[in-house]
Design a binder for these strands. Structure first.
Length: 570
RNA sequence: GCUCCUGUGGUGUAGUCCGGUUAAGCAUACUGCCCUCUCAAGGCAGUGAUCCCGGGUUCAAAUCCCGGCGGGAGCACCA
């Protein structure tokens, strides 16, 4: 046996055995050797015999003996290996992506306010474009005039700005309607699409039963005639353009899906200029192709539509982008879906889209979640198709770390109890606004009359000693309805329980909104919004709406108004 | 029901394509210690996964093959 090799085997065996109660296994040692010497793979038999001999010797040694052998023979193993630190802020490589050639797109429909689901999609699109030095297009997918509203186009842009997402181009699908008509007519003329005048229910039934209808076999001239009539004569619902797919396909999407339908509602951007509108599949495929998209990323529920997407582009002989999908974002007890959010608002269960209990961008912002925390969170979720209920506490954790250095520390007491302290030898204290970051100091005037939290007060009895933070140590002398105490000294290093306080005279009453979980086991949680009151320092009034505060020993809150804060997280 | 997707610690993921250098890495949560006039942040350490189950291929499988089971989605003239 090669002397060098057997030394190496011995080294691995000793190391592994000493790490695992003195016993190593052939499999492990063999695998490690093969990993670093791929050339030995065709000599497994011999190698395996050698390994087995060596580990037999090693396994007979006690751990102490193994350790001392390592010390003598392989001292380099004793050096602690540095823990590798790779911050996971990048997505996995994109299939078939070439540097400088990647174009992604974020295609929201302007039919609602943006939420964290939009953020996930947009962040992934932007990150991939950035990663490959490519471009990202924001395209409003506005092909249903009954749903789109002007305010939503704006709200989505505002949301993306807030998130810090930059796009290289902005456009609307509705800009290209004429082009899409051309493609539609081309499909009709080449026999790859037809105009169907069956009732909606009939179409649906036929698709279920894999039955073609008579419109499918109408001659081309008449089909073109029908197509023209869609722009004038037919009423909505009387005619649709259908793709000549495969009524027998196992994939129901392929059973002659709708390409165009008539909608007479006024469009947010185009008014009543058009009334024949393309459906999602047709518009998206054409737009992606024309826009030069290389990678079309969408959520998983579209997965079955890939076949149709590619079939349409094949029929049109257009360039095909690569379509990839990722899982939809879901939270435990916090709905992301537009449909559910709308219902909650319509039923009056939550007042608006800025409610801090919901994951709209406005809601998250109002709650005190930072855009960068959202980005980091989304990236930590990865690019995967596995169904997940995302952990909101991870978002909170990222946010806490980011917001900590920006949060002014303030005293606040919940359920105030009076405490009168005598013999304080000074009439004001100066308190630092942050323990580690220089955020200035503030002077708090005191007169011996304080509020402390009921929770802390409950722990006190006559003779108890506490430290009022930044002020001094106090001995409790009386404990009835109100508490009374005596100033002892100002020994900071005391081991006494440290509690926060507020001067009675200058206390500011605020309400604290604590957003809770909206659904518990699918039932609406009537107590999802807890509102409590507290007293804080008058310095609160110097803060701006939107400032983040950490109420000491309570948690992080965002100033929502002169008299109200929203609890961000602990 | 049919079709498709998916299944790694409490949770979210890395690794899976191209089987071996890792008795499964990171984050979060939890526990302990250090730091600290906070139950925050920061530092350090620890607990925690027979990689859904059962077979098979192989010297070797989280990784490949077959068969189950669990979860999700689609089956709109919404996107």
């Amino acid at each position: 046996m090669d002397e060098k090799l057997s030394q190496e085997i011995r080294k691995i065996a000793l190391q592994n055995a000493s790490e695992h109660n003195g016993q190593t296994r052939e499999k492990i040692v063999l695998a490690r050797i093969l990993g670093s010497h791929p050339d030995l793979r065709n000599k497994i038999k011999n190698l395996s015999r050698d390994v087995s001999e060596i580990i037999n010797v090693v396994n007979k040694l006690s751990i102490e003996e193994q350790r001392s052998k390592i010390e003598q023979e392989f001292p380099d193993l004793l050096k602690a290996k540095p823990k590798q630190e790779i911050e996971k802020t990048i997505l996995p490589p994109l299939e078939e992506a070439k540097n400088g050639m990647v174009v992604t797109r974020f295609p929201p429909e302007p039919n609602g306010y943006p939420h964290i689901g939009h953020a996930k999609a947009a962040i992934i699109d932007e990150e991939y474009a950035k990663m490959y030095g490519g471009k990202m297009i924001l395209r409003f997918d506005d092909t249903n005039p009954a749903n789109e509203r002007m305010e939503y186009y704006a709200a989505i842009k505002v949301g993306l700005d807030w998130l810090g997402i930059k796009y290289d181009k902005i456009k609307n699908t509705s800009d290209d309607l004429e082009l899409i008509y051309d493609k539609g007519l081309h499909m009709i003329k080449s026999g790859q699409a037809y105009v169907c005048t069956c009732k909606a229910e009939t179409v649906s039934e036929n698709r279920k039963e894999k039955k073609p209808c008579k419109c499918r076999s109408i001659d081309q001239k008449q089909t073109v005639d029908r197509w023209e009539k869609m722009f004038e004569k037919y009423k909505p619902g009387e005619a649709i353009v259908r793709f000549r797919g495969n009524m027998n396909s196992e994939n129901t999407v392929m059973r002659d899906p709708v390409l165009f339908r008539i909608i007479d509602s006024s469009h947010a951007l185009l008014g009543n200029k058009y009334r024949v509108w393309p459906g999602y599949d047709f518009a998206t495929a054409i737009e992606d192709s024309v826009d030069g998209i290389t990678h079309a990323l969408r959520t998983k529920e579209y997965e079955l539509r890939n076949e149709l997407y590619y079939a349409i582009l094949d029929a049109l002989q257009m360039r095909k982008p690569k379509v990839l999908e990722f899982s939809r974002l879901e939270f435990e007890g916090m709905p992301v879906s537009k449909r559910v959010l709308k219902q909650l608002i319509d039923e009056g269960k939550i007042p608006d889209y800025e409610d801090p209990r919901i994951p709209t961008l406005e809601g998250l912002k109002r709650r005190g979640i930072l855009p960068d925390a959202i980005r980091k969170f989304v990236l930590s979720l990865g690019f995967t198709k596995a169904d997940t209920t995302a952990p909101f506490d991870v978002l909170e954790s990222f946010n806490r770390k980011m917001v900590d250095s920006k949060s002014i520390r303030l005293n606040m007491v919940k359920e105030p109890v009076k405490l009168i302290v005598s013999k304080i030898p000074f009439d004001s204290v100066t308190i630092s606004n942050h323990p580690t970051v220089d955020m200035g100091k503030r002077k708090v005037v005191i007169d011996g009359n304080f509020y402390i939290s009921k929770k802390d007060a409950n722990e006190l009895k006559v003779g108890s000693q506490i430290r009022l933070m930044n002020l001094g140590n106090v001995s409790i002398t009386k404990s009835s309805v109100d508490l009374e105490g005596e100033f002892i000294d100002d020994n900071v290093k005391s081991e006494l329980p440290k509690i926060q306080w507020v001067p009675q005279k200058s206390a500011q009453k605020i309400s604290i909104i604590i957003p809770g979980i909206l659904f518990i086991n699918d039932n609406f949680n009537e107590n999802s919004l807890e509102i409590t009151e507290g007293y804080t320092e008058d310095y609160y009034s110097n803060l701006k709406v939107g400032d983040e505060i950490q109420f000491i020993r309570f948690g992080y809150c965002r100033k929502d108004s002169a008299t109200q804060v929203i609890f961000t997280h602990k």
